[in-house]
Computed example of a mutant assay.
Amino acid sequence: MGQTLIIKNMVCARCKSTVIELLTRNGLEIESIELGKVVVKQALENNYNAIKNGLKDLGFELIEDESKVLVEQIKVIVIQSLSENDSEPIISKITKEIGKNDSAISKLFSKSEGITLEKYIINLKIEKVKEYIQLNQLNFSEIAYNLNYNNSSHLAKQFKSVTGMSMSEYRKLQDWDRKELDQIV
């Protein structure tokens, strides 16, 4: 009988590859994998501690608490939405996929992470802006459009509020101050 594993900090394709390698090295067959979630064909049983410790050594965490599982699902939805330049409002997407109203989701997230869901989304968007600026492929208006801002001035105000500098000032920096997505809380 298979088992579903919810894994914290699994936020990119490289993370998935790392987790696949760890699980297969420990004799597990993977049925499916997506950000934050792996279904293996057999129960962990004897491998449980080795898998849990192996994940921890790699910067991941096996999540078992139901509320933490929901919070991790929320984070994955937000990260995927930003990566896909999805035009659907992120909160709407979360409520649809999680099956709870936005108030319950916000309370759960805030209680678990010590930051509001809205602030978390803004922080992720700002990191995405930094990435776009670093790639130097889009102007500020295009970046704002890709991240579903109504206009670039709203994005500019948020960017300055979070980073303490304008997007133009950030663009001129030689030392790019970017955070890893799994480190944003």
Rank of each mutant, 00 (worst) to 15 (best):
R171E: 13
N85C: 07
G36Y: 06
K125F: 01
E97P: 02
S103E: 10
R171L: 01
L117H: 05
I115K: 06
G36R: 06
T18C: 08
I20W: 08
N123D: 04
I98V: 13
L108Y: 07
H154T: 09
E72Y: 07
N101E: 09
K96P: 01
S81N: 12
I90Q: 12
M1Y: 00
D175T: 05
N26F: 10
I33D: 06
I133V: 15
Y132W: 02
N150V: 08
K130Y: 04
V69A: 15
V78A: 13
C12Y: 09
R25S: 13
E64Q: 14
V129K: 04
T116S: 15
R171K: 14
S153W: 03
L23H: 03
T163K: 05
V19W: 02
L62I: 01
Q80Y: 06
A43R: 15
G27T: 07
A104P: 07
S141H: 08
G54T: 13
G59A: 08
L28R: 04
L155W: 00
N139F: 05
T163Q: 02
L44Q: 11
H154R: 03
S110L: 12
K111F: 12
K179W: 04
V40R: 02
F60C: 03
N151A: 13
Q3S: 03
E131A: 10
M10I: 01
D102R: 15
D86L: 05
D86K: 09
Q174D: 11
D86T: 09
L173Y: 01
E142H: 05
S141L: 00
L155R: 04
I63F: 07
S103M: 13
N146A: 15
G36W: 04
V38L: 10
P89L: 12
D57I: 02
K56C: 03
L173W: 01
E61T: 01
K68A: 09
L5S: 00
K130A: 03
S106L: 10
F60R: 01
I20P: 06
I122H: 10
V129P: 03
I74N: 09
E21P: 03
Q80L: 14
I126F: 09
L70D: 11
I122V: 12
D57P: 02
A104Q: 13
